[in-house]
Design a protein around this nucleic acid. Structure first.
Length: 506
RNA sequence: GGCCCGUUCGUCUAACGGCUAGGACGCCAGGUUUUCAUCCUGGUAAUAGGGGUUCGAUUCCCCUACGGGCUACCA
């Protein structure tokens, strides 16, 4: 029964893709690559009322950014399309009819209002879990309770109807989940779900079975929220006669909010100040903007690495994995069963790790577009090299502007604590030493500095903070000798002189 | 309410009956550093509770508690 591994990611285009969705896509992708199989993108838009403009493009762009692009599916071609369910509309009817003929499904004419009334009544009587099932269907308007003539009459008259699955009254449905093991549910606790809606579209339940079968899907890897309906899907495969090729199931645990309990939501991100979406998203109706990891300065590979580790681990101490390494290491067996709370701090840490591994030149290339000043690539690479040890994000590399302009303000605290009466005199003498230094390298700058201290019998603390504040305006930062080398002799001396002037006046 | 799934340091997790329950993030302390950051060293801290099974349970079973998911002509 070994066959080609084919998995799908099947989001509905109802808005931006949540990071939980991205992780589901990622695990599908990793599983496919691990087994040399196919990763397919299918758009599940059977609910036309929830369609959101731009969502499909957002999904594709997100996957692309993450580097987990499908090799088949909507926007990627393939022989088993179309890969959008609304475009497959004509394909479903025959399978619904097949079920009706096999007495595994039936027509139902109840209106939404009538059903709501049933639920309300049941609730009033203290029975909140009303179901359309083997018992209640006898009292409702459908082809199991009405005569054949009545049914024909209604159909002929064009009365709206849905088609429901006909579940047995009391039968155990069991299936093996790749992550959870055996799951057993009794049909007495399930209801006759609608398979085909009155608007002529199948519901998710019907469409996903038909499509997975037609697209030869071997494994269904999806979120835990689908676990309760998995038995229904198993039954559908059986009733359609597709048991032999039914896919295996794996239900992923959910991603939870960092604090408290419950599923991670957009609100949590707003509240706690971190993105919940891979890319920034502007709501087409309200104009509301939701921040994205990409726009917040996260590296795609760091983001993917972090996501992979939320619910999965390789069983080794290694934490930094490239996408290729993840493909190699990933197994469903090592996916945990329980939900994981999202940790923004750890996400930041991952980004920091990736930032460190990049060279100054690589980082310079990345931040180049954000630089207003006219600087050389070499200079910018030097800035990045100096700043990267104290940054987690690329924008932090540019947090201090003293590399690009002469400071106009001087750190107040440093001045207050370190600037003494005799300081101008000392700095002027130091400046003179530097003016005669020809080999302007950080090592020489440092040596000159230390010799000067020895000569004057001064400590580091008396001179270096002042040196720093004059050149950079700051009270802290990378090595002053390296900064000086990068800035160049002329610039450093210029700043020392103009700085003293300003401070003496003040 | 019903059904299903789950439960190891604050968080992500390792230990698939057998060591002082390991690692990472965070936090705290010390060291390095002119300073901040980095870095190094150390520390804090967990098997939800109760019953079994067993020579031995984090691990297997049951109950309880807690948490989550589902319960639409939404996916």
């Amino acid at each position: 029964m070994d066959r080609r591994v084919r998995v799908r990611f099947a989001p509905s285009p109802t808005g931006p893709l949540h990071i939980g969705g991205v992780r589901t896509a990622l695990y599908n992708y990793l599983f496919a690559k691990k087994h040399g199989g196919d990763f397919i993108l299918r758009i599940e838009d059977t609910d036309q009322t929830r369609f959101v403009k731009g969502a499909e493009e957002y999904i594709q762009e997100s996957l692309k950014w993450c580097g987990i692009e499908p090799n088949e599916g909507q926007g990627y071609g393939g022989d088993l399309g179309p890969y959008v369910q609304s475009e497959r509309k004509p394909m479903y009817r025959q399978y619904v009819d097949q079920l009706i003929e096999a007495d595994k499904a039936y027509y139902a004419f109840d209106t939404a209002e009538e059903l709501n009334e049933q639920r309300e009544n049941a609730k009033k009587q203290g029975l909140p879990g009303w179901q359309y099932n083997a018992v209640t269907r006898q009292y409702l308007k459908n082809s199991t309770s009405l005569s054949a003539d009545e049914v024909q009459e209604k159909l002929y008259a064009g009365e709206p109807y849905v088609v429901r699955i006909k579940l047995p009254r009391n039968e155990e449905v069991r299936f093996h989940d790749e992550i959870r093991g055996w799951v057993v549910v009794n049909t007495a606790n399930m209801d006759d779900k609608v398979l085909f809606k009155s608007d002529g579209m199948p519901t998710y339940h019907m469409a996903n079975i038909v499509d997975d079968h037609l697209m030869k899907i071997s494994h269904v890897i999806r979120g835990e929220e689908w676990l309760p309906s998995a038995p229904l899907h198993v039954l559908l495969y059986k009733y359609l006669g597709w048991e032999d090729t039914a896919p295996k199931f794996a239900h992923l645990p959910l991603i939870l909010k960092p604090d408290g309990n419950g599923k991670l939501s957009k609100r949590d991100g707003d509240r706690l100040g971190f993105p919940v979406f891979p890319l920034q998203w502007t709501d087409p109706k309200t104009g509301d903007i939701s921040s994205g990891y990409r726009e917040n300065g996260y590296f795609a590979d760091a983001f993917v690495n972090m996501l992979a580790f939320l619910g999965w681990n390789p069983g080794t101490p290694q934490e930094i994995f490239s996408l290729e390494e993840l493909c190699e290491a990933f197994t469903l067996e090592r996916v945990g069963k329980s939900g994981s709370k999202f940790d923004p701090d750890k996400t930041k840490w991952f980004n920091q790790q990736y930032l460190r591994e990049k060279s100054g030149a690589e980082l310079a290339e990345l931040i180049k577009p954000q630089i207003g000043a006219d600087v050389s690539d070499e200079f910018l690479a030097g800035v990045c090299e100096l700043m990267k040890e104290r940054a987690s994000f690329t924008h932090e590399l540019l947090a201090d502007n003293y590399f690009f302009e002469t400071p106009s303000e001087f750190d107040e605290k440093t001045i207050r604590k370190k600037w003494k009466e005799h300081t101008p005199q000392i700095i002027e003498e130091l400046t003179a030493k530097y003016e005669s230094l020809n080999n302007w390298t950080s090592a020489e700058i440092e040596k000159t500095f230390k010799d000067f201290l020895t000569e004057k019998e001064l400590g580091m603390g008396a001179v270096l903070p002042n040196f720093r504040v004059l050149v950079t305006g700051k009270g802290m930062g990378p090595s002053m000798f390296q900064i000086s080398e990068l800035l160049g002799k002329e610039e450093v001396i210029k700043r020392l002189k103009s700085g003293i002037e300003k401070l003496v006046q003040a």
